[in-house]
C-alpha cells in the first residue's frame, strides 16, 4: 500500500479516537487492529514492543482512579482510566502497525508532501532511531563487560554509566551531522 495512504489512515484513525470516547467503539477498534497484526504475522514483534509499555497503561489507570474529579479511589475514575489506557493502547498499536508494514524509505516517502525542511527533520529523526538503538546496545555491552550490575536497586548508579556516554555521543553526532548537512548546502532557515 502507498505509504502516504497508510500515514493518512493512521492520522484519521488516531483523530477519530480523540473524538469518540465510546468504550465499545474503542474495543472494536482494538480488536480490529489486533486482527490486522495477526494478518501481517507481526504478533511476536508486537508483544516485544508493547510489553514495556504496560507500565504506562497501569500508571494511566491508577492516576485516573485516584484523581478523577477529585475523588480518591472511585469506580468512575477506574473506568475512565481503563478507557484512556485502551485508547493509548490502540494508538500505539496503530503506530506499530504503520512502522511494521512500511519500509524505512517508504516512511520517508510518506512525508514527501510536507515542506522539504520539515520532511528532512522527520527523516533525520527516523534514521536516528536504529542508530541510537545500536549505540545503546554497544554501550550496554561495554558497561556489562566492565561488570556493571543491571539488577542493582540503585537505578541512578546503574543507568548513569549508560546514559552519560549515550547523550555525549548522540550530541556529538548531531553536531557533526549539522555541519555535514551544511557542507552539502543545507540551510535550515
Amino acid at each position: 500500500m502507498n505509504p502516504k495512504i497508510k500515514l493518512l489512515s493512521l492520522i484519521l484513525l488516531s483523530s477519530t479516537m480523540l473524538f469518540f470516547t465510546n468504550f465499545i467503539f474503542i474495543c472494536i477498534l482494538a480488536v480490529s487492529v489486533l486482527i490486522l497484526i495477526f494478518v501481517f504475522g507481526a504478533q511476536e514483534n508486537f508483544v516485544k514492543w508493547i510489553k514495556p509499555l504496560f507500565f504506562i497503561f497501569i500508571i494511566v489507570i491508577l492516576l485516573n482512579t485516584f484523581t478523577f474529579s477529585g475523588l480518591s479511589g472511585s469506580i468512575a475514575g477506574f473506568q475512565f482510566g481503563v478507557l484512556y489506557a485502551l485508547r493509548l493502547f490502540v494508538l500505539m498499536t496503530l503506530v506499530f502497525l504503520f512502522v511494521q508494514t512500511t519500509s524505512v524509505s517508504g516512511l520517508g516517502k510518506a512525508f514527501d508532501f510536507m515542506p522539504r525542511s520539515i520532511s528532512q527533520v522527520l527523516v533525520l529523526t527516523l534514521a536516528l532511531i536504529p542508530q541510537v538503538t545500536e549505540l545503546t546496545e554497544k554501550i550496554l555491552n561495554a558497561q556489562k563487560s566492565r561488570g556493571l550490575n543491571f539488577r542493582s536497586p540503585n537505578i541512578f548508579r546503574t543507568y548513569f554509566p549508560v546514559l552519560v556516554p549515550l547523550f555525549a555521543k548522540t550530541l556529538d553526532r548531531s553536531e557533526h551531522m549539522a555541519l555535514a548537512m551544511q557542507a552539502r548546502g543545507f540551510e535550515s532557515g
Binding site: V123, A127, Q131, R173, M177, A183, G185, E187
Partner: peptide, 25 residues
C-alpha cells in the same frame, strides 16, 4: 568535504536519497 566518520553524515533512508541530498539543496 567528506567527514572523518561516515556515521556523522549519513542520515537519509536510501543510498539514492543520500546522494541527491546535496543536489537538492
Amino acid at each position: 568535504l567528506v567527514f572523518q566518520d561516515p556515521d556523522w553524515q549519513l542520515f537519509s533512508l536510501s543510498v539514492r536519497e543520500e546522494i541527491s541530498f546535496g543536489l537538492l539543496n
